[in-house]
């Protein structure tokens, strides 16, 4: 069922939902961007509708709730371990279609990859979604070619702002009751979605092993500064590393932390004895790109990249991941004369 509701009506719906759920949404953090007097849009908890940034694309993804940048898993003393406290209240995440598709990829990695990660699972079970409609494509988006531009299920309700009104496709009866109580007008609503992006990509169907030594990666060795921003803003990057910390004033007590990791940053492939599997930034780029548009597909049947374009938005060296996919496709064609997907 769908509803058209006034802004004030919708504000009351959000306020009521906020009493039942923690609301996790894109928020404009004024002045917290990289540069002076520049904002950043990233996810945070909100209680009011007007705190949600619905116009701009978020610079950072929603994944920070499901896979926190830094999370204490447990504390330890000599012979005991205590799991860190966990906020087990239900959550609604407000996200766009590409990010809804990213959730499927996070689930694949953390729940369906041989065994379920308990720390991911316990929060994932608490999470529901609200879909933010996309009335237009943004710069750097390539969701259409990645097949993530449309979401038709899996959300409680959708949001499309149309002037002073909000249009919602409501899938959850409890939420529908809130809309009814706020004098919403019943009307068929299809969440807005884009059907074309300015950025186009062609993902190669098969990638031959010779790509490993192809010269196309050398460019990235020269250009990339291995900052890893592309990974940290990506809604589907799932890598983490562990920190075992021993408190300085009592070395027998400490905690284990799980922190986000990046396959572009120094140290990611370090092994005992001083080895490092991917030294150059070109090798790291190769690993990342093939993982996103090939290797993941070999295991799960679909590509990991959802085409949100955040990596292109954040790269300080103007390296385009989307363009790299196209270069990869060209290189594959050159190697095999192979057909594209």
């Amino acid at each position: 069922m769908g509803y058209v509701i006034s802004r004030t009506g919708f504000e009351s719906v959000i306020e009521k939902l906020g009493q039942q759920y923690r609301l996790y949404a894109p928020v404009r953090k004024v002045g917290e961007g990289r540069y002076t007097d520049v904002d950043v849009v990233r996810y945070d908890f909100v209680t009011k509708f007007d705190e949600i940034e619905l116009e701009a694309k978020s610079d950072y993804a929603f994944k920070e709730l499901l896979t926190p940048l830094s999370q204490t898993l447990f504390f330890f003393t000599e012979n005991e371990v205590k799991e860190a406290d966990f906020d087990d209240r239900d959550v609604i995440i407000f996200l766009r279609s590409c990010d809804m598709h990213a959730v499927k990829r996070l689930d694949a990695i953390y729940l369906e990859n041989k065994f379920a990660d308990p720390f991911y699972e316990r929060i994932r079970k608490r999470v529901k979604f609200a879909l933010i409609g996309c009335a237009h494509s943004y710069e750097d988006c390539f969701c259409v070619d990645m097949g993530t531009n449309r979401t038709t299920e899996g959300y409680l309700f959708s949001i499309d702002v149309a002037g002073d009104e909000i249009k919602s496709d409501v899938a959850c009866p409890d939420v529908a009751a809130l809309f009814e109580a706020a004098d919403a007008k019943a009307e068929e609503v299809v969440p807005a979605y884009v059907t074309e992006n300015e950025v186009r990509v062609t993902v190669p169907e098969k990638v031959p092993n010779e790509i490993y030594k192809h010269g196309m990666w050398d460019e990235y060795t020269a250009r990339c500064i291995n900052c890893g921003r592309c990974n940290f803003v990506c809604p589907t990057c799932t890598c983490y590393t562990m920190q075992d910390v021993f408190y300085t004033d009592n070395g027998k007590v400490g905690e284990r932390r799980r922190v986000g990791a990046s396959c572009m940053v120094d140290g990611y492939t370090n092994v005992a004895g001083g080895g490092q599997y991917r030294r150059t930034n070109g090798e790291r780029m190769r690993f990342k790109v093939l993982h996103k548009v090939y290797d993941f597909r070999k295991r799960f049947g679909y590509d990991m990249c959802v085409g949100c374009g955040r990596c292109d938005m954040v790269c300080p060296e103007y390296i385009s991941f989307a363009n790299c996919i196209n270069k990869l496709n060209d290189a594959v064609n050159e190697l095999e004369g192979g057909a594209s997907k």
Binding site: E32, T36, C227
Partner: peptide, 24 residues
């Protein structure tokens, strides 16, 4: 212990750390 400590006497407030931080 895995987190960053800033020497407030030495820090000149140039913001280089902010510019290079990948996570905000």
């Amino acid at each position: 212990n895995g987190k960053v400590v800033r020497d407030t006497d030495l820090c000149i407030g140039c913001g280089v750390c902010v510019a290079y931080c990948p996570t905000r």
